[in-house]
Simulated assay, not measured.
Amino acid sequence: MQPGIPIQRNPALAGLACLRCGTAYGLDGPEPLTGCPRCRAEGYPASLVVRYDGGPWQPRPGARGMARYGERLPYLAYPSLGEGGTPLVDLPRLAAALGVARLWVKNEGQNPTGSHKDRLSPLVVARALELGYPAVIAASSGNQGVSLALYAAAAGLECEIATTPTMSASWRDALDQVGARVVTFTDPFDRWRYVARRVEEGACYPATNFIVPPVGSNPFGVDGYKTVAHEIVQATAGDEPPTVVVAPCSRGDLLWGLWRGFQEAREAGWLPELPRLVAAEPFPRLARVLAGADYRDHFPGRTRLISIGGSTVTYQAVRAVQDSRGRAVPVTEGEAAEARQQLARAGVYAECSSATVLAAALRLQDEGWLRAGDRVVLVVTSHGFKDGGEFVRSASR
């Protein structure tokens, strides 16, 4: 552990469990870094989730941001840059345009590095510090890499990012400024092979998946995404809570974190009814699985919405949508660019990949899936300054 870096494990932290088979894993001995060993051996990779002991809990008095919900996070103290506590913005004009009762945007672009990844990174870094790793590593197209690198730097750890040539200049510059080691691969799967090798060598602690078929990202980090749901519930307390929540989706880390967070809020008595979750994706992947395809297959497609790109699906994404009676909605680049402009004119400047949430909601309105009484939250995961202007202009044509 780095001197002067406050790390405090939550005493209620009990271990990990497979969300597919339920097998429990303790915190003593080697940590499973590729999901559930039992399910992987059976050929059905599945993510692990964090387990807690103890009964009812409440937000921590006096704590701010993500730390307010520390009683259900793996660490009570961790390297922080002020993450969480992002605004839930009421947009009545867009609600009227969608024909729903209420519409809010949960603006995750107001996190320290401009994306929701800032809820994952500090917990991954805390775990790496506790275990004595000298470095952390991630396969990332941008947001995750920048977030992890900055949190690692704040904690005195080295950081490696495996990426592709599609990473934007602004993200690459941020990684250069913070001193991260950036390794570029033309084949996206080569990134995962590189991460796997560095993890197997014991050189780095992983923040993201690195196996095929994939599982979710580091479970200690993904647990941080629950706080997005907790904040939504707390912000609408005394009001009518959301009935639909729409989030951008690649491999479903945020989607699963939201679902677990809403479940915890209901168990704590904060939430009378669980919302339906909608995954916005750039081409049919999860939608095909929900229609009957095997989640372990590959679903190739081309997109410049790189923050939610990729050809794979995870079990956690399938479970979150199925269990919540939700949907997966493919959105084109053009629809995303148009939705981005609509959000901007309503006062929210979003990355194009994030604007897919409004495009998905508009599609569901056309299909009649959204109801007049619905109360909808759109989770905007990153701010618009991260998009290249030429991409946005070309996507709009």
Rank of each mutant, 00 (worst) to 15 (best):
R38Q: 03
G145F: 14
E273V: 14
L103Q: 15
P242R: 08
Y78L: 05
A149D: 15
S168Q: 13
F185P: 01
A12K: 00
C159Q: 05
A317E: 04
Q316E: 06
V318H: 07
P56R: 10
A336Q: 10
L13R: 04
R260E: 09
V125H: 01
L13C: 06
T236A: 05
G301I: 10
S140P: 08
I137Q: 08
Y133K: 11
V49M: 01
T332W: 13
L305W: 11
P219G: 05
F220R: 01
C249N: 15
R393I: 08
C21D: 02
A17V: 02
D239G: 10
V212F: 03
P165R: 11
Y75P: 02
G35R: 02
P330Y: 06
Q110D: 08
L378F: 10
A77T: 03
L88A: 03
D190M: 07
N209L: 05
C36R: 00
A95Y: 13
P300I: 02
G22I: 01
G142I: 04
R40N: 03
E83N: 09
Y52I: 01
R93A: 15
R393G: 09
R51K: 07
L362K: 15
R9W: 00
Q341S: 11
R304K: 12
A279N: 11
A128C: 11
H383W: 11
V246S: 09
A229T: 02
G22Y: 00
A46P: 01
W171C: 09
G65L: 01
A293H: 08
V348R: 07
T227I: 03
P122N: 07
P6Q: 06
L88H: 08
A24W: 01
A196F: 13
A355S: 12
Y133C: 05
N143M: 09
Q144R: 09
L370T: 10
R319W: 06
L13E: 09
P242W: 14
R51M: 00
P92T: 15
V321D: 09
T166P: 02
E351H: 13
E83A: 07
R51Y: 01
V228E: 04
L157W: 04
W259I: 02
I7E: 04
A320D: 03
F189G: 03
A395H: 10
C21S: 01
P45W: 07
Y349R: 13
Q263C: 12
T34Q: 07
L129Y: 07
K226I: 00
E231L: 05
E108C: 06
G309W: 12
T303F: 09
G85C: 04
